[in-house]
């Protein structure tokens, strides 16, 4: 079953002078792990922001589990669904940000319980139980009462992943989840994502970690200049890329 379908997404900035996404289509099935790689400015982050409703696309269709978040009108302009509809659709996905965006005035535990209580209407006990279960999974049980500022970047990002998971999304997006971390802290976050991949959590991961993308993904998408240049299994894209642009990108990466 398709969880996410994006059809013919177009997005430009600065009064249509800067085309960031040029007719991108992408679908993600249940249990699939998709990595999106590509150089800076290729449109990967904008794609993620369009998918998570943080940025409005100009044109295209956005469908979650068969429900339309946006579709084109007769002029080919994207029209978004109503408030109630979008609220429902927002509960389908979660997003892990590059710089965590934890709530600094809440303890780790409250970062996880408050959205469950305020948004999902769960009871305090239920929310707490779910939160502790996830913190345990992240190896952060003993940090429940700490504040985000007392944690390392890697720990903060794991809390952020737990916070997203606490809302029980059907699909989880990651926007360069390790880009703000020291190399030595990257591993602990990647390990957690890898574990989620093994549990068949549906995920779309925008990343610069090539080895990681190769290891966890079912499908790798290479984007450049606002289009999907190439996609396929990790071995297809990394070991036998067909397109010259992909080869060039991967060559530059392996040289670093």
């Amino acid at each position: 079953m398709k969880i996410l379908e994006m059809n013919h997404i177009k997005k430009s900035f600065n009064n249509a002078s800067l085309h960031v996404l040029k007719d991108i289509s992408l679908s993600v099935s249940e249990g699939e792990v998709v990595s999106v790689i590509g150089p800076s400015g290729s449109g990967k982050s904008t794609l993620l922001r369009c998918a998570t409703l943080l940025t409005e696309m100009d044109s295209g269709e956005l469908i979650y589990s068969g429900e339309y978040a946006a579709k084109n009108n007769e002029h080919g302009k994207a029209v978004y669904s109503g408030k109630a509809e979008l609220k429902k659709i927002r509960s389908i996905f979660g997003l892990v940000f590059q710089n965590f965006n934890l709530f600094p005035h809440y303890s780790v535990l409250k970062n996880l319980t408050d959205p469950q209580i305020s948004v999902l209407g769960r009871s305090k006990e239920e929310a707490r139980e779910r939160a502790m279960q996830l913190l345990k999974k992240m190896g952060l049980e003993e940090k429940a009462d700490a504040y985000p500022c007392e944690l390392s970047g890697g720990q903060q990002q794991r809390v952020a992943i737990a916070r997203a998971l606490a809302m029980d999304p059907l699909i989880l997006f990651f926007d360069e989840p390790t880009s703000a971390l020291d190399p030595e802290l990257t591993g602990e976050v990647l390990k957690v994502i890898k574990q989620l991949a093994e549990e068949r959590m549906t995920m779309v991961i925008v990343t610069h970690e090539m080895a990681f993308a190769k290891a966890v993904s079912d499908r790798v998408i290479f984007m450049d200049g606002g289009v999907i240049v190439e996609q396929g299994t990790p071995s297809e894209v990394f070991d036998n890329p067909r397109m010259e642009r992909t080869k060039q990108f991967l060559r530059n990466y392996s040289q670093q």
Partner: peptide, 26 residues
């Protein structure tokens, strides 16, 4: 930071909840 608004939006907080629970205390 705008990230606080975005995190709240993604988690599904309403505009009013975002202001009173996330933004105002900070």
């Amino acid at each position: 930071p705008v990230g606080q608004y975005e995190a709240a939006e993604i988690l599904g907080y309403s505009k009013i909840q975002t202001f009173f629970r996330i933004i105002l205390p900070q």
